[in-house]
């Protein structure tokens, strides 16, 4: 399976999905003109990746995102929840700057009622 690398832009985050190591990270800011256009390939890649793998760890390291992006993130999380329910070992790490209270609370909000391991992690 090929890696998925998307360079960051002013309005879209960086995607670094390494199929070989299983390191998957979405980082930066996210307010694309079309959130669907941006996140659809990401969803497709994850769905494909989950077919072959038994475990997955996805990291989010976002500083800002709009409402459409939050829906796309929820869609990704739903996809992962389903995989988790099917017996795959899925883990999500939500990284936030330790000074960024809103991003911490946002991570905690995402984590609530989530049927998979969801860690909120502060970095300096």
């Amino acid at each position: 399976m090929t890696n998925l690398n998307i360079a960051p832009t002013k309005t879209t985050p960086q995607i670094e999905f390494n199929a070989a190591t299983g390191d998957l990270e979405i980082s930066g800011q996210s307010y694309p003109e079309s959130a669907v256009d941006f996140y659809q390939p990401v969803m497709t890649w994850l769905a494909e990746f989950l077919k072959g793998e038994t475990s997955l760890t996805l990291g989010f390291k976002l500083s800002y995102f709009n409402t459409s992006s939050s829906k796309c993130i929820l869609n990704i999380l739903r996809l992962l929840e389903k995989a988790n329910a099917e017996g795959k070992k899925v883990e999500v790490n939500w990284h936030h700057n330790e000074a960024d209270e809103q991003m911490q609370e946002t991570g905690e909000e995402f984590a609530e009622n989530m049927k998979l391991t969801f860690n909120v992690v502060a970095f300096k």
Binding site: T67, S70, Q102, E109, F110
Partner: peptide, 20 residues
């Protein structure tokens, strides 16, 4: 139930983004 949970999450997350 899932949709309701999402709607509530998005509302709160949206509020936090606006607060930021």
């Amino acid at each position: 139930k899932n949709l309701l949970q999402q709607a509530m999450k998005m509302t709160r997350i949206g509020d936090m983004a606006q607060e930021k």
